[in-house]
Write a protein that binds this DNA or RNA. Structure first.
Lengths: 211, 211
DNA sequence: TGGCGTATAGTCGGAACCGACTAATAGGAG
DNA sequence: CTCCTATTAGTCGGTTCCGACTATACGCCA
């Protein structure tokens, strides 16, 4: 399976917007922010203009007008091509069907949870849990104010619900892990170097060896 | 809060490994794979060597030996410095405490779920659910074979449990959403351009408009 | 014994990404 | 009316990242 020509999902957002109307890049960025899509797409001016150029190179979008108001910088307005629209749909389809490996920073840190020792680890996770609660509340408020009040159809913000669900799961895992650390059910081994390699202390008289 | 000097978490993995023993980069990569840490860290030879160089530049690790066997390419063996070790712990602490925005591809695709239409969307999500089930089963088998059989302390693979939990949550959301699409409880509006902007069809006689 | 596949170890050039910067205008405070 | 800030619009250069590539050595089967 050949890799996609463009992999930055910001390009997906651009194609999605241009389905509605021709637009210039700056307007794309502000529209995405207005619609709270900046939680799903990393909007960065530099990347955005690079992405738009790449889309033009592949013939998925094309410039339709370059206007100038006063002596402000020129604005180039883009529109999608038919190729762009069909690629848009195919791309979404593929992204939905096939899970790909992601490498969240949190997972990396959890990998070395042991390095903090049980007390500091539990404390750090507790702080994270607090931040997650805030984030979940804020997101809930946003949903209430948009979908909840009927301003926006639910389908148009379904990804926010999805993210919310993911954070709730992370919060649940975090809390459970804090409890397991505190009540000792997550055993905390200690390392030691021996002649044959590494040894760690084990609960219930079990001894393990590696290397 | 100043940004970290090194942001690639692969550097974290390197620091973690060198805590045990001096090593050369190739060995780091194979050790990480052996320990199933390649699900939490994106291991890429190019990035790895770049990362190691960056760590040396910052004084977090240092070369301790350059050996050569036969006419094979030279191997440079590295060890951590004390600075490196303290940065390692601080970095983990920070990553655990502070959630940062991540932009998974799935979230991007879900943002434009509407573009597929209800039938294709449900079908695509169903395929994903199948892949997730496989992945969850495989991961469960790995855990059973390592932690379950007492070969490895649970703490050393805790991030695998964390990832498993996240996939299970994603699977649950995916299944729920498929159901909601199929039974019509996730209403699927249609767009139309009017003089004043955009209009979408709404359930129960409600009409929405956007600028 | 010669040829093929795999493991070892690392290099390199280009693509992608980022965020600080420029520069003009509009809007409000005093 | 002038100064200050926010908004609009986009540019640019440096860093990071990636994966295809090189090159040697080893095992094994025919």
């Amino acid at each position: 399976m050949a890799r996609r020509k463009i992999s930055n999902t910001l390009a997906l957002a651009v194609l999605g917007l241009l389905r509605e109307q021709p637009m210039h890049p700056y307007e794309m960025a502000s529209t995405l922010r207005e619609r709270h899509k900046d939680g799903s797409f990393k909007i960065n001016s530099g990347s955005l203009y690079d992405t738009v150029e790449a889309l033009v190179r592949h013939g998925w979008i094309e410039p339709v007008e370059t206007a100038r108001e006063g002596r402000r910088p020129e604005r180039t307005v883009y529109a999608t091509t038919e190729l762009g629209q069909s690629e848009f749909v195919d791309w979404i389809d593929e992204l939905l069907r096939t899970p790909v490996a992601e490498y969240p920073k949190f997972m990396a840190a959890v990998s070395y949870l042991g390095a903090l020792g049980p007390d500091r680890a539990a404390e750090a996770l507790a702080e994270r849990a607090g931040h997650l609660v805030e984030r979940i509340e804020e997101t809930g408020a946003v949903l209430a104010d948009t979908v909840g009040s009927g301003k926006v159809p639910r389908l148009f913000m379904i990804e926010v619900e999805c993210a919310l669900h993911a954070w709730e799961a992370e919060l649940a895992w975090t809390r459970r892990t804090i409890d397991e650390i505190r009540d000792g059910s997550l055993f905390w081994p200690t390392f030691e170097r021996t002649a044959e390699g590494w040894t760690w202390s084990a609960p219930a008289d079990r001894k393990g060896t590696a290397g």
